[in-house]
């Protein structure tokens, strides 16, 4: 599936990960030499509920095709409210995306625990595939 996409047209994905929970999973994917598209870039934050809509919109503005939030989910060390607040960030941003004529499906979120290497890789492969189809 990846081979059919020309290299320079591969969709670019920005991942917001978290220092304690999802970043270790993304590292683990590399450790286990699991491959995902190299057009995936990561910015790590303390907690996924700290992501600002303006950053996401900025990423689309600058040429990213998709933004993926590798959320803490229930493992968040800062408390249970993380899940709800992160979802609010997503829905608020998706509203803004609609207003700007951006497909809200270009913003995705999933909880990635610190050993969820395989789920992360699958998310990246599937998201890349979905984004290249929609283009």
């Amino acid at each position: 599936m990846m081979d059919t996409v020309k290299e320079n047209s591969q969709p670019k994905i920005l991942v917001f990960s978290t220092e304690k929970i999802s970043d270790p999973a993304i590292d683990l994917a590399g450790l286990l030499k699991m491959h995902y598209p190299p057009t995936v870039f990561t910015i790590s934050l303390p907690c996924s509920s700290a992501i600002k809509s303006r950053w996401i919109l900025h990423a689309f503005d600058k040429g990213f095709d998709g933004v993926f939030i590798a959320a803490d989910g229930t493992d968040c060390t800062y408390g249970e409210s993380c899940i709800e607040l992160t979802s609010q960030v997503v829905s608020r941003t998706q509203d803004m995306m609609r207003e700007k004529g951006l497909d809200p499906a270009r913003l995705k979120m999933a909880a990635i625990c610190s050993v969820c290497a395989e789920p992360f890789v699958n998310h990246m492969i599937n998201f890349t595939e979905a984004l290249s189809k929609s283009d």
């Binding site: 993304i26 590292d27 994917a29 590399g30 030499k33 491959h35 190299p38 057009t39 870039f41």
Partner: peptide, 23 residues
């Protein structure tokens, strides 16, 4: 991080692994 999220994750594609490392 250009190892776990660079050379190792993209050892199947050195050219793009380099691109990603540059950026």
């Amino acid at each position: 991080n250009i190892r776990e999220q660079g050379s190792w994750a993209h050892s199947d594609n050195p050219k793009q692994a380099t691109e990603k490392a540059v950026r």
